[in-house]
Write a protein that binds this DNA or RNA. Structure first.
Lengths: 148, 148
DNA sequence: TTACGAAACTTGATTCATTCCAGAAAACTG
DNA sequence: CAGTTTTCTGGAATGAATCAAGTTTCGTAA
């Protein structure tokens, strides 16, 4: 079960510890969760893990490229374990829910800035803002709108 | 000088107050500044303005659409008065500097998500990450920044 | 297998952007 | 110019995230 997670850690020369495996497992099972949720999930298995340990682990994993930090404007840090591909996110303005969105325009869309002001750009991050299905239908019948 | 700023406020039915005019003037003169910088600039003219007033003003102006809040991941809130057009930003990973970038692909680039998961999307925000010219040439410039 | 050095973790305090609160001041309306 | 509402002042509080010192655990080599 955690063998692959252990392999992930060893692949990037990180020590294999129980908190790290628990964090990776939590992120594998929950696509986009914030730090508090990670702490809660980790403590479901290892009650004695400190919040500082989770912060340290998340930073180590992010620096190693095993997880990605997502932080939409006005929100706290979220993390996901889907890395390596070029995908973006939709964020609900109402409840803050996050969902994955694949690149609309082939490989690296919008990565070519019209005027880069001399910046050396290495990443184009796209955040789609909107309202999620749950927030669209508070309690009324599910009326389908939109054509897509 | 502040006549146009006053007109901006009245156009959106906001009361015209000195703190608000000072905030608008600060944002007009400085394209992308954070809250602390706004407070400092406002107090250069009106030393008695409280930090809470600036927070309130920035929120009111943002809600009214007169200014836009920019908050790249890991940074504190920044504000700009260039609104109404669809432009994006380059952010320096080293010093946090922000510069404007016009839309690369015409009007509303990337606004069509490949799979919107049922979200009703109203905005596509693009953040280009890279390194600014000052941080690229450490010799010539003092690219020091104290932000967190 | 055991000992050792380095890293990872625990505990607790601290920082700092932002918000909350109650009272005083200022802006628009009639 | 008085009344009503909004806005601002001053101070305290919140909460995500970080810092620091000491202890434990991991990986390696004897």
């Amino acid at each position: 079960m955690t063998a692959d997670l252990e392999a992930q850690l060893r692949a990037v020369s990180l020590r294999v510890t129980r908190p790290r495996l628990a964090v990776l497992a939590a992120l594998r099972d929950h696509p986009h969760i914030d730090t508090d949720a990670v702490i809660a999930l980790v403590r479901a298995d290892l009650p004695a893990v400190s919040h500082q340990a989770v912060y340290d682990v998340l930073r180590a994993l992010t620096d190693a490229g095993l997880v990605r930090r997502i932080q939409p404007a006005g929100a706290i840090a979220h993390y996901e374990s889907r890395v390596g591909d070029n995908h973006h996110h939709v964020v609900c303005r109402s409840c803050g829910a996050i969902a994955d969105v694949d690149c609309a325009v082939g490989h690296a869309p919008c990565l070519t800035a019209s005027d880069d002001h001399g910046f050396v750009i290495d990443e184009a991050e796209v955040v789609y803002w909107g309202v999620c299905p749950s927030c669209l239908t508070p309690n009324t019948a599910s009326s389908e709108e939109g054509s897509t």
